[in-house]
Design a protein around this nucleic acid. Structure first.
Lengths: 349, 349
DNA sequence: TTGAAAGCGCTAACAT
DNA sequence: ATGTTAGCGCTTTCAA
C-alpha cells in the first residue's frame, strides 16, 4: 500500500491530469484550466496554489485532449519535400528557432517529392493535428491552397512562386540575385556563360533563369539555349551539366549554377578535367550554404538568407495563428552577392 | 441552401467524422470504428458499405481523438540536440524512410543541447503524444531512462553509450573505427598525431578517444595529452584545435578529427597557414558525411552508416511498439575506413 | 454481428 | 471569481 511519495513523483512519468492538480490545489479543475491557459478571473491566491500543485505533481498537459476540446494543439505542421539538402535544413533551423521560443511543437512530413502526398498530408495536418502549416518549396499547391484560404487555416509557404494566386509566403529576390550575379560575371569580361538551372517546376529556378536571360539581354548578348543545362538542384547534375557544357565546341568560360550543390558538382567536373580554378573556369553558385565558404576555392555565390527565411515564415505564421484574418502577405527577402574566389576575370588568350 | 455536392467534397477539407461516415453507410459509428481499425466481427457487406462511404466523404481520422480514446497516435517522437549537422540529418533521413513506409508521423524536438529540455520533452512526448520515442545523441538519459523502461514505453537511443545501464540502442563501432584510422596513419609513418575530440559528455567521442589511445599504445607510442584538443564536434573547434596543435613546439604531422566537420575546420586552418594538403599535413575525419568526398583534397575518413543507423533504429522501435516486452537490444553497426586523398606518408625531412 | 454508452483529458460556455 | 457541465472524435467495453 504505497502512498504518493516525493520520490515517486519525481521519477514517474505517470499520467497526472488537471483533475489531480485540482485535487491537490483544492480547486475545481476548470480553475486549473484557466491557470494553464493564462486566463483572467483567477484570484492570485488560487493561481499560486495551482501553480504550486502543478510543479509538485509534475503536470504535463495532454496536447491531444487540449486540441480535441477545441483549444490549440500548439503544434505546427511542416511539409518538406526532401530532407537532405542544406537548403531545407537551414530554413528548418530558422523555423525551429522561433517556434521554440513560442513553445510550439513541430510535426514534420517529408513528401519525398511525391506530389500526391502533399495534399494528403495537408488534410491530415489541418484536421486539428496542427494549428498552422508551413510548406517549404510546395509543388502541388492548387489542390489545397484554396481550401486552406477559405477555411482561414493559418499557413505560410516558403519559396513558392505564385503563378497568379496570391498566398502568404516568404521568398527571396531570385530574379535580382541571378541578375546581379550575371552582371558580376559579365563585368569580368565573360561572354559565354553556362547556366545550370534547377527543376522546371520550382518557381525559384524559373526566376533565376529569367534573371540570367535578362542580364544577357541588357548587355546586348544573345541567349544561347545550348548554354543552359537542366538539372534538379542536385550535385550530380551540376557535374553532368558541367561535362556537357564543357564539351561544347565553343565552351563557356564561366558557369553559373542555380544552387551551390550543383556548383560543387561543377567544381568536381572541372577538377576532373584538369582545369585550374578559377583560372580556367569561373564558377558561381546560389544559396550560400555553409560549405560554400569551405570548398576550395571558396565559392562566389548569391547569398539567400535561408535561416532568416525560416524565421520570417514562422513569425508570419504566428501572426496568422493569432489573427487568421490578417491580410495575406508576401515577404521577399533580399539576396546578396558574396564574392569569394571562384570567379576571375576572363583571361585573354 | 446548398446540398453536399461532389465538387464540395473533393475540395473541402472540412471535418468529416466517423459519425458522418456512419450516417452515410447506414450503420452505427462503432461499426465504422471497427472497420477503420480492421477488427473482426463486421459483415463483409457492411464493411464494404463503410469503406465506400469513407472514400466518398474523404474521411481522415482525427489522430488526437484516436489517441485520447486509447488508441495509438501513430506518431513517433524524435529528440535531436542540434538540427544543423549533417550527422543528424543523415540519421533522420533513415528514420524518416522507414517510418514513412509504416505510416507513422514524426514529431520533432530539438533540445539545442539544453539538457533540461530533454526530460521535459520526453515527458511531453510520452504523455500520449507519441507511441514511441527516438533519441539521437541523448545527453541526460539518467533522468528518464528508468521511467521509460518501467513503463515499457517503446524507445530507442541512437549513439548512446550505456555507462552501465543497458538500453535499446543503435550505435557504431566507434572504438574500432578510430583504432583502424590510427593504424592507417601509423602505417603511414606518422608518429605525432593530433587528435581533436568531440564533447566529453557524448559516449561516441569518448570511445573514439579510447581507440586513439589504444592504437598508440599498441604501437608502443606514448600518449601525449598535449596532442589532444577538446572540441564539440563543430567546425570552428576543428579550426581552433588545428591552430593550437600546429603551434606546438613539436607539432603533429597528422591530425585526426573526431568528426568530419571538425576535419574541415582543420583544413581551413592548415590552408590559412599556407600548408599544402596532404603533403604538409595529413588529415583524417570521422562520419563520412557527403561533403567529405567533395572537399579538396577529398577527405579520408571513417565511414559511419548514418542513414542505416536511422533505419535500424526506426525498425527496432517499430518492433518495440509491436511488442513492448521484446528483449532490450543493442545494435552495433560496423564502421569502415574510407581512404581518399587527405593523408600521405610522412615526408622525410 | 451490431449497437449503445462510457469515458480519454481538456476547453469553453453557462451558472452561480 | 469560481464551479458545473457539455461536448471534441474516437476506442472499447458491455449488451443485445
Amino acid at each position: 500500500m504505497r502512498k504518493k511519495s516525493d520520490g515517486d513523483r519525481s521519477t514517474s512519468l505517470h499520467d497526472v491530469t488537471i483533475v489531480d492538480v485540482a485535487d491537490e490545489a483544492g480547486v475545481s479543475y476548470a480553475t486549473v484550466s484557466r491557470v494553464i491557459n493564462n486566463k483572467d478571473h483567477v484570484s492570485p491566491e488560487k493561481r499560486e496554489r495551482v501553480l504550486r500543485a502543478m510543479a509538485q505533481l509534475g503536470y504535463v498537459a495532454n496536447l491531444q485532449a487540449r486540441s480535441l476540446a477545441g483549444g490549440s494543439s500548439h503544434v505546427v505542421g511542416l511539409l518538406v519535400n526532401y530532407l537532405s539538402s542544406s537548403y531545407t535544413i537551414e530554413i528548418m533551423r530558422g523555423i525551429d528557432e522561433v517556434l521554440q521560443t513560442h513553445h510550439y511543437d513541430l510535426v514534420l512530413y517529408t513528401t519525398h517529392t511525391r506530389k500526391t502526398k502533399e495534399s494528403a498530408y495537408v488534410a491530415r495536418l489541418t484536421r486539428h493535428l496542427a494549428d498552422g502549416l508551413l510548406l517549404i518549396l510546395p509543388q502541388e499547391t492548387t489542390s489545397y491552397l484554396d481550401a486552406l484560404r477559405q477555411r482561414r487555416f493559418p499557413h505560410v509557404l516558403v519559396d513558392y512562386l505564385s503563378d497568379g494566386a496570391y498566398a502568404p509566403s516568404v521568398a527571396t529576390t531570385n530574379f535580382q540575385g541571378a541578375y546581379d550575379a550575371m552582371n558580376y560575371l559579365l563585368e569580368l569580361d565573360h561572354r559565354r556563360i553556362g547556366f545550370i538551372t534547377g527543376g522546371r517546376e520550382t518557381g525559384c529556378a524559373q526566376q533565376r533563369l529569367e534573371g540570367y536571360q535578362a542580364a544577357l539581354k541588357d548587355h546586348g548578348l544573345p541567349y544561347d539555349p545550348q548554354l543552359v543545362y537542366y538539372g534538379k538542384f542536385l550535385q550530380p547534375q551540376g557535374y553532368q551539366g558541367a561535362q556537357t557544357l564543357l564539351n561544347l565546341a565553343d565552351p563557356p568560360t564561366a558557369i553559373f549554377a542555380s544552387n551551390d550543390s550543383m556548383a560543387f558538382g561543377v567544381m568536381e567536373a572541372a577538377r576532373e578535367r584538369g582545369l585550374h580554378l578559377p583560372e580556367d573556369l569561373s564558377i558561381l553558385g546560389f544559396d550560400d550554404i555553409p560549405q560554400a565558404a569551405q570548398v576550395h576555392p571558396p565559392l562566389t555565390t548569391v547569398h539567400q538568407p535561408l535561416n532568416k527565411m525560416g524565421q520570417r515564415a514562422a513569425e508570419l505564421l504566428l501572426d496568422y495563428m493569432a489573427d487568421p484574418l490578417a491580410p495575406i502577405e508576401r515577404i521577399e527577402l533580399p539576396t546578396d552577392l558574396i564574392i569569394r574566389q571562384s570567379c576571375q576575370r576572363r583571361s585573354e588568350r
